[in-house]
């Protein structure tokens, strides 16, 4: 107890100068004591720091609130969606029959065949820019297209030759319904011979044209995709049949 008393009195300045100096000398000769004093000082700082404590509490509240909201949504879906789903199936069946008897528009073909690109994200990176562009790919995967697009816009202003970044920038533009920008970016990638994204860019460019109701442009690219053996060959054939 005596030790704690001396440490606390040293820290709050209530030791007289003679005792305080003697204590300082002991500390400089005894690392264990010095560490102990440091622990007490640090604990006192933490106790005094109400602002940091309140900040933590507030962040905790925000997380709990949002996490409860997410759980409620899941519960709602599980509890209340059963019966509407049954009704929905009946409606979809009816619509499907109606669709089979009606000429399909390019935009409808888009809706049937379009799926966001399934990215194979590697979180490995080597520098700050790479870290930032990796984050944009994750944001795309997480469907936060606006944030992803913003990061890529900044990144591409300094790294214009990064074809992969152009691909994702185009894909974000497609999701954000900026079809003109999507066309520009995906065309750039589709015309690059060396990128592994070439085929993907062609497929999504065709999708963009469908969305823009440019049936012929879409068909031209889809025809090209059917000429080689790639992951879109069958889908491209199906789309052409639909059109």
């Amino acid at each position: 107890m005596k030790t704690i008393q001396t440490i606390e009195e040293y820290l709050d300045g209530s030791l007289n100068s003679k005792k305080s100096n003697a204590f300082r000398e002991k500390m400089s000769a005894n690392k264990q004591l010095k560490d102990e004093v440091e622990l007490h000082r640090s604990v006192n700082e933490a106790i005094k720091d109400d602002a940091l404590y309140e900040f933590r509490q507030n962040v905790k509240k925000v997380i709990t609130k949002n996490s409860k909201r997410a759980n409620k949504q899941i519960l709602f879906i599980k509890t209340y969606i059963k019966y509407p789903v049954a009704a929905g199936i009946v409606v979809i069946l009816g619509l499907s029959i109606w669709k089979l008897t009606t000429r399909i528009t390019p935009s409808e073909v888009f809706n049937e065949f379009y799926k966001p690109y399934q990215t194979d994200i590697s979180t490995r990176s080597v520098n700050q820019s790479a870290n930032s562009v990796q984050l944009s790919y994750i944001l795309y995967q997480e469907k936060d297209y606006e944030a992803s697009s913003e990061i890529l816009k900044n990144y591409l202003s300094q790294n214009y030759n990064d074809i992969t970044a152009h691909f994702y920038y185009g894909m974000n533009a497609l999701e954000l319904k900026n079809y003109k920008l999507a066309t520009t970016e995906l065309l750039l990638v589709a015309n690059d011979r060396s990128t592994p994204f070439k085929i993907h860019a062609q497929w999504y460019l065709a999708m963009t044209y469908l969305k823009m109701n440019k049936r012929n442009d879409a068909e031209n690219i889809l025809e090209k995709l059917t000429e080689s053996d790639n992951i879109y060959t069958n889908a491209a054939k199906k789309v052409i049949r639909k059109l």
């Binding site: 507030n58 925000v62 997380i63 949002n66 979180t123 984050l135 944001l139 997480e142 944030a147």
Partner: peptide, 21 residues
């Protein structure tokens, strides 16, 4: 300034990538 409205907004824009990580 420990503004809860801003903290909520930051959660909305920043939590998902961290969760993914």
């Amino acid at each position: 300034r420990n503004d809860i409205k801003i903290l909520n907004h930051i959660y909305d824009i920043s939590y998902r990538p961290i969760r993914y990580l």
